[in-house]
């Protein structure tokens, strides 16, 4: 955009543009350096050292990274969040797309009401969302014991070793589906309706329009939502931390890599190794996002 606009301007403006461009973007650059670049560099620096009570802090090179690679606790946590990602991302995005298509073609008062209701959980902090579901899952305070007994059944134990995976998937789905739905819905709304008109004249039915026009038109937004969801799930922290208060034996303190990093920094006082774990996790997330964007580049043009 700016490229086109500046070409028409006289040459002497360029020096002025240079100055004012930096004046306007400068404050952000300061914050960016202070709270992104420096912490990252510092974490990397710290990860190159090791502290032991006998020899104090000493430079250990990449020894901590070798330890991460061999660390079975980290590997278990990482595999766990990858599993969560594989299950949660398709559920959330599938549900969000289905609902967005439904709401887009259903223009009734009830549709706008549902839209607000489905989006509502986004306005509720993840901590409170996890708290509420934790209560709901509780045998003593939740409704499910009563609900299941109506049919003569016993409620499943949501907070047991076998049930916790599904329980956490449910909390996250409840919290985030509405957010992705709104993004996809907004994208659907911005498609010019003439496209549908001409398709209808050509004899396409609603299903064909949805599949062949609507879905491809929002694929860019789908990719964006998938990346958000991917990044969010790999750094899973809040929900398991809250549910852990209720089920400490089912959810260990090292349940996810982020929880592991926190436990290392506070529980075990291993700040250097904690920095290594954080840095490694960040790196893995970035690699995942890049792979995903490469894979989808051809179909959506996002990479250009």
């Amino acid at each position: 955009m700016s490229h086109r606009s500046t070409q028409s301007k006289p040459k002497r403006r360029i020096g002025k543009d240079n100055l004012w461009g930096w004046i306007f973007t400068g404050p952000f650059a300061v914050i960016f350096i202070l709270f992104l670049v420096i912490p990252l560099v510092y974490a990397f620096y710290m990860s190159l050292f090791t502290y032991t009570q006998i020899s104090g802090t000493y430079f250990s090179g990449f020894a901590n990274y070798i330890r991460v690679v061999k660390d079975s606790v980290f590997a278990t946590g990482l595999l766990r969040v990858i599993l969560y990602t594989a299950v949660m991302v398709p559920i959330q995005l599938g549900l969000a797309l289905g609902l967005a298509l439904l709401l887009d073609s259903f223009k009734k008062k009830f549709a706008s009401f549902s839209r607000v209701v489905i989006f509502l959980p986004y306005a509720i902090p993840a901590v409170i969302g996890a708290l509420m579901w934790g209560f709901m899952y509780s045998k003593l305070m939740g409704p499910f014991t009563t609900l299941f007994s109506l049919f003569g059944l016993q409620a499943p134990d949501f907070l047991s070793a076998g049930g916790i995976f599904g329980s956490l998937v449910n909390v996250v789905t409840w919290q985030w589906t509405g957010y992705y739905m709104i993004i996809l819905y907004s994208a659907l709304q911005s498609i010019p309706s003439e496209l549908y008109e001409s398709a209808r004249i050509d004899g396409a039915n609603e299903a064909k329009i949805a599949l062949h026009i609507k879905v491809p038109m929002v694929s860019g937004s789908m990719i964006m939502c998938t990346i958000f969801s991917l990044i969010g799930t790999l750094q899973f922290f809040t929900e398991p931390t809250i549910l852990r208060n209720q089920a400490p034996t089912v959810i260990p303190a090292e349940y996810t890599p982020n929880m592991y990093a926190q436990a290392l920094a506070f529980g075990y006082n291993q700040t250097n190794y904690s920095a290594t774990v954080s840095f490694s996790l960040g790196l893995i997330v970035v690699i995942f996002s890049i792979i995903f964007m490469r894979l989808t580049r051809r179909s959506n043009g996002l990479g250009d």
């Binding site: 990346i227 954080s278 840095f279 960040g282």
Partner: peptide, 17 residues
């Protein structure tokens, strides 16, 4: 590129700093 860096990956480093 920074949009891809997970916010929580910065938490522990920020704390250490």
């Amino acid at each position: 590129g920074a949009l891809m860096i997970p916010a929580t990956a910065l938490v522990i480093p920020t704390f250490l700093l």
